[in-house]
Design a binder for these strands. Sequence first.
DNA 1: CACTTGACAGCACAAGTGTTTGCTTGCTAT
DNA 2: ATAGCAAGCAAACACTTGTGCTGTCAAGTG
Lengths: 217, 217
Amino acid sequence: MRTADGLSVRQDKILHYIEEFFAKHGYWPAIRDIQTDLKISSTSVVAYNLKALQEKGKINRQGKVSRGITLPKSLNPVVASTSHQVPLLGTITAGQPLPDPEQVDIGSAEKVEVPLDLATADKLKDVYALRVRGLSMIDALIDDGDIVLLRRQETANNGDMVAAMLVDENAVTLKKFYQEGLHIRLQPANSTMQPIFTTSDNVRIQGRVVGVLRSLF
Amino acid sequence: MRTADGLSVRQDKILHYIEEFFAKHGYWPAIRDIQTDLKISSTSVVAYNLKALQEKGKINRQGKVSRGITLPKSLNPVVASTSHQVPLLGTITAGQPLPDPEQVDIGSAEKVEVPLDLATADKLKDVYALRVRGLSMIDALIDDGDIVLLRRQETANNGDMVAAMLVDENAVTLKKFYQEGLHIRLQPANSTMQPIFTTSDNVRIQGRVVGVLRSLF
DNA sequence: CACTTGACAGCACAAGTGTTTGCTTGCTAT
DNA sequence: ATAGCAAGCAAACACTTGTGCTGTCAAGTG
């Protein structure tokens, strides 16, 4: 007898057992867990069926690794996630350059949850977050306390919202970037504000703004 | 040296390593994984620190079980539900009153993922999202295309950012709310803009703004 | 009938892995 | 000084667990 997925009854039971075991314990079962709880006579039978499940793409296995049976993320109801974490590297204030993400221990940094609506996971590479202090970014429609998401890059296309450092002023600002011949126009997002015109060598792009989160709770 | 959590540097590193290992592999690390990758001289040192982490409630352990180190669900960024879905009920444009959430079939509405950093789950009750069309909310630092999160309510405290309908003008606007005697002051979030003064009966509060999401991808 | 194949059994081995024991080090309080 | 203690080190030990045989058995298959 077969299930709809082309699995034998036993394989189906094993698959569900693996799911439930992980949901209950938080780690994966060993072959002998499956064996005893499902009252299978031999570990080799379990191994045999696990191999079948693996070939059918229902599970992943890491050879030789204890409890290395895993479910593909997309099939794992416990792990499937709709958001992604990016490191919160610090605070951005007018005048201070952005921290270099490579200088900071990303592993120990605070994390910010970013919904995948805002950005798909693969686009979140090299993205980090900064908390905004002060009102200096208000012409970019960014308030005190907002969290901005930045992707590290040193070039920009016209119209991109970038974190740009003005060398002369020693200030960082968030503006829309427009290259106009030898000059650069930095246009505030807020149309009631005036743009900045300056030369290329006075501008150093530190990253592109890819999102803003504001909590008013 | 200690981290903010009262963990030693080594314990902090181990904790983050466990997180990353699980995120990467889908199963938990063995003591020897931790040892070799963190270049710790002995397994017993790892065991020693794991015990400390366990006593501090940072990890759970199943004695004797291979790869039985787990993170409490609330601390596990991979498993913990760190975001929540709220219905996206439509579009807000200057002049149009907000849709009544009860009039819309919430079940079939589009959903927006909201990170719990922005709002804890229990506070997300009666919260819904609207997409902003046009620049009419620019003085509330909200751009065309932003998504605003609103909690349905008809009263407000001073200083709350609210969605207020001005009856005479038949317009909806997002402003900070201040009751001043019999009059009401609606103050833009953007200090370069001017407030609106009006009477109480000309203002109908439609909800409180609890968050803003902006994606620039 | 001989031959294959899928599924299961039993068992033992070796690798994977947690635990224990004894020893060293550096620091602090008595 | 000396005792106490947290933290680390090294090696051995013992349990846990995946894997590799060797068979059995029933159901095809030519």
